[in-house]
Design a binder for these strands. Structure first.
Length: 379
RNA sequence: GGGGGGGUAGCGAAGUGGCUAAACGCGGUUGACUGUAACUCAAUUCUCUCCGAGUUCGGCGGUUCGAAUCCGCCCCCCCCCA
């Protein structure tokens, strides 16, 4: 009996070397490159699973640390697993909680055995080990799960990063040894910061452990775009072509295009949904803040080139009004738009790759959005 | 008619002689947000400007070196009793 998972590279763009692929999971097959909406607490804020499917979303992310604390993985298990719990029958990916090691850094202590945390909810002392992270994810039941890693701050010294990378590798091995459920695909996470030798060291060590897929972590933590692109280059050239690559936490238009060019298959990011709740719209002409006064009497669609539910039915003036009044519907409609914007982007990327014109497509977008003038911020 | 309370920046509301162009909240404007402690956070919000200057705390007039703060008169609002 072979694994329910299989990744195939479908086409490699003759013009750019970027690739399309298909990843088969027990909950369906998904096309890459793809963008995965983030639903940390088993919910993409303000958007239902049905709506996500309808807009072309293929995989939903959720989070081990957060579900561990609330409602607790046992509850999710009793519910029949994450899919049943959240009423979503498509593929789910859970992050290991490694990012929380970074984002909740004030209250953590990293040791060889694992990470001591203080709960951000009530201050409880918690301990997360690589094995525990796997156990929780086994109970949650996502299709794709992550090794517990350390996501070091940027910048970190070479010496610190080397220790960290080696520990993350040891954690990856421990997690892999502990993982018994073959209906879940466990990824290793490449770290190493901006150091080429450490990215290589990390990637090679993880490849030796033979994971079915590889993540690139430690990006979008304050480094420049150029540095991030180098981090991808340093890592990806040591990863096997036949395995999926997942660039964690990256979700601006320009970075997705650059990542795809470098061979990345999967992206996720809270950015589209978070900035939507705060009034920022990703559009075919760049980011706009819908709360700006200039939209007060703008009765046109958010983005004329968008085919999303929001753009088909609502005006900028109305959306501005909703967001300014703190209406949930406003956050919802902008979230739907921003997600569809990135999902549509990845659809177009796949088409362009399959037609061997990804480079042209990418250049057209960069020109259209004038990304060069705003690349410090990204799109 | 009698008694009481009050009028502070767009709104609400502190402040009761100098450290006050005036706390704080709301509203307004702008910005940030990248494996979500995030319906969050930051800046700005009398006028003109580059430091800086000029007008303010119902109105007018006083006291004082100095007043939103003390005194006098006037205007307006609210509550209670007749």
């Amino acid at each position: 009996m072979s694994s329910p998972f299989r990744f195939e590279v479908l086409h490699t763009c003759k013009q750019s070397g970027a690739r399309t692929g298909i990843l088969h999971t027990p909950h369906g097959s998904v096309l890459t490159p793809m963008f995965m909406p983030v639903g940390t607490l088993a919910s993409v804020k303000f958007v239902s699973p049905e709506e996500l499917k309808e807009m072309g979303s293929q995989v939903i992310l959720s989070n081990t640390y957060h579900l561990w604390l609330r409602p607790g993985e046992k509850i999710v298990e009793k519910a029949g697993g994450l899919h049943k719990f959240m009423n979503y029958d498509g593929p789910i990916l859970t992050d290991s909680g490694g990012f929380q090691v970074f984002s909740l850094a004030k209250t953590r202590k990293i040791k060889e055995e694992g990470v001591s945390f203080k709960s951000h909810l009530n201050g409880d002392s918690l301990f997360l080990s690589p094995e525990k992270a796997i156990e929780i994810q086994n109970a949650l039941g996502a299709d794709i799960i992550m090794s517990l890693d350390e996501c070091p701050a940027f910048p970190s010294t070479h010496a610190y990063m080397k220790d960290s990378v080696d520990r993350t590798t040891r954690w990856a091995k421990r997690g892999k040894d502990h993982h018994k459920n073959e209906n879940q695909m466990l990824f290793g996470i490449v770290q190493g910061g901006e150091y080429e030798d450490l990215r290589e060291r990390s990637a090679k060590a993880l490849v030796d452990l033979d994971f079915p897929g590889y993540s690139i972590g430690g990006t979008s933590v304050g480094e420049s775009k150029e540095t991030m692109y180098k981090m991808i280059d340093y890592a990806i050239k040591h990863l096997p072509l036949e395995k999926p690559r997942y660039l964690m936490g990256v979700g601006t238009t320009d970075a997705i295009l650059e990542g795809v060019l470098r061979g990345v298959d999967m992206f996720d990011c809270v950015l589209p949904t978070r900035i939507a709740r705060h009034g920022t719209v990703m559009s075919s002409h760049g980011r706009i803040n819908i709360t700006n006064k200039k939209f007060e009497e703008d009765f046109t669609a958010l983005d004329h080139e968008c085919d999303c539910y929001t753009c088909k039915n609502y005006t900028r003036a109305y959306l501005r009004h909703l967001v300014k009044c703190n209406e949930g519907l406003g956050m919802r409609l902008l979230s739907i738009h921003n997600l569809r914007f990135l999902l549509k982007l990845t659809e177009e990327i796949r088409t362009a790759i399959n037609e061997d014109r990804f480079l042209d497509y990418k250049n057209e977008l960069f020109e259209k959005y004038d990304l060069n003038s705003v690349d410090s911020k990204g799109f």
